[in-house]
Computed example of a mutant assay.
Amino acid sequence: MPASWAATARIKRKKMLIPLYTPRHFRGLSTWHISGWRIKAYGISAHASEKDQFLQPELITAARSFVEANLSRMEVTPHYSAGFVVLHHGSSAKTLLTQWWVNECVCMQFAAQSDYSGQPSFSFTKSDLMACAHELVAIGFERRAWISTVMSGRPMEAYLESWLPHGLY
């Protein structure tokens, strides 16, 4: 490791608490049809119960608008016009992960966040954010769905009809 990187790492190192894992509510929102793309949208909520409104409609609308406004990032890759998003109203931010399938078995991603409170306004993350432990549940399911459908010779429709069941994860 370069000396300058090691020095930077020591400067930024601090004691961080690790919270206990608490399952969160997951729900498939819908398939978004945007300019020929089919994007499966998942929601995760740190706060909703089965009886509560799951995610605020304006949060879902803002997420879809952000994906649509940034479709050009996806269009420049050789793609299958299929992917998924994970919209997570977590305990400290609103996160939007947009993934799409390219080159047979590669999943591309861009990540955006909005402040925890107030009206949602997504912008690209300034760090190398991949996903939190909760978001990896949906990503892991989508990986398995891609392999068991498209990569097993089944039609794209089979993949698009495969959803992580609603529930606590």
Results as ranks from 00 to 15, higher is better:
residue 69 A to C: 00
residue 72 S to T: 01
residue 103 N to W: 03
residue 106 V to D: 15
residue 108 M to R: 10
residue 81 S to F: 11
residue 80 Y to S: 10
residue 69 A to E: 13
residue 52 D to K: 08
residue 88 H to T: 07
residue 108 M to D: 06
residue 101 W to K: 04
residue 74 M to L: 12
residue 56 Q to W: 09
residue 84 F to H: 06
residue 82 A to R: 05
residue 55 L to H: 04
residue 81 S to E: 14
residue 91 S to Q: 09
residue 63 A to V: 02
residue 60 I to D: 03
residue 104 E to R: 04
residue 53 Q to L: 12
residue 76 V to D: 14
residue 52 D to C: 06
residue 84 F to Y: 13
residue 91 S to M: 06
residue 108 M to L: 07
residue 66 F to L: 07
residue 68 E to L: 02
residue 88 H to Y: 14
residue 81 S to C: 11
residue 97 L to G: 09
residue 86 V to L: 11
residue 79 H to V: 01
residue 55 L to M: 04
residue 77 T to G: 04
residue 59 L to A: 08
residue 73 R to K: 12
residue 88 H to S: 11
residue 105 C to F: 08
residue 57 P to V: 06
residue 102 V to L: 02
residue 57 P to G: 10
residue 59 L to V: 12
residue 71 L to V: 02
residue 66 F to A: 07
residue 96 L to D: 13
residue 75 E to R: 06
residue 97 L to N: 15
residue 57 P to W: 07
residue 86 V to Y: 10
residue 57 P to F: 06
residue 56 Q to G: 08
residue 92 S to T: 11
residue 60 I to E: 13
residue 104 E to N: 05
residue 77 T to C: 12
residue 87 L to P: 00
residue 56 Q to N: 12
residue 102 V to Y: 01
residue 57 P to D: 15
residue 99 Q to S: 12
residue 87 L to M: 00
residue 100 W to N: 05
residue 91 S to K: 11
residue 99 Q to V: 03
residue 61 T to H: 12
residue 107 C to L: 10
residue 78 P to D: 10
residue 57 P to Y: 08
residue 67 V to I: 11
residue 62 A to N: 08
residue 92 S to H: 13
residue 75 E to A: 10
residue 65 S to H: 03
residue 70 N to F: 07
residue 63 A to T: 01
residue 74 M to C: 14
residue 62 A to H: 09
residue 65 S to V: 01
residue 68 E to K: 06
residue 53 Q to V: 09
residue 102 V to I: 10
residue 86 V to N: 13
residue 94 K to I: 04
residue 99 Q to T: 05
residue 78 P to C: 01
residue 102 V to G: 02
residue 73 R to W: 04
residue 52 D to E: 14
residue 97 L to D: 12
residue 64 R to V: 09
residue 95 T to I: 10
residue 65 S to D: 15
residue 95 T to Q: 13
residue 66 F to Y: 15
residue 93 A to F: 10
residue 104 E to D: 14
residue 107 C to M: 11
residue 58 E to V: 04
residue 54 F to W: 09
residue 96 L to P: 02
residue 52 D to W: 09
residue 108 M to Y: 08
residue 99 Q to C: 12
residue 100 W to G: 08
residue 71 L to Y: 04
residue 61 T to M: 09
residue 103 N to G: 01
residue 72 S to Y: 00
residue 58 E to F: 03
residue 60 I to H: 03
residue 95 T to C: 07
residue 58 E to T: 06
residue 101 W to A: 05
residue 89 H to L: 04
residue 70 N to G: 06
residue 74 M to V: 05
residue 56 Q to F: 10
residue 73 R to C: 02
residue 104 E to C: 01
residue 54 F to S: 03
residue 81 S to N: 14
residue 108 M to G: 00
residue 83 G to N: 06
residue 56 Q to D: 15
residue 87 L to K: 00
residue 92 S to I: 07
residue 72 S to K: 01
residue 65 S to C: 02
residue 77 T to F: 13
residue 87 L to A: 00
residue 63 A to N: 04
residue 100 W to I: 03
residue 105 C to W: 05
residue 81 S to V: 02
residue 60 I to V: 13
residue 57 P to M: 09
residue 83 G to V: 02
residue 88 H to L: 05
residue 58 E to Q: 14
residue 78 P to H: 04
residue 60 I to K: 06
residue 64 R to P: 01
residue 82 A to I: 12
residue 99 Q to P: 03
residue 77 T to W: 14
residue 83 G to R: 05
residue 84 F to K: 01
residue 85 V to K: 04
residue 81 S to Q: 15
residue 102 V to T: 15
residue 94 K to N: 14
residue 67 V to L: 14
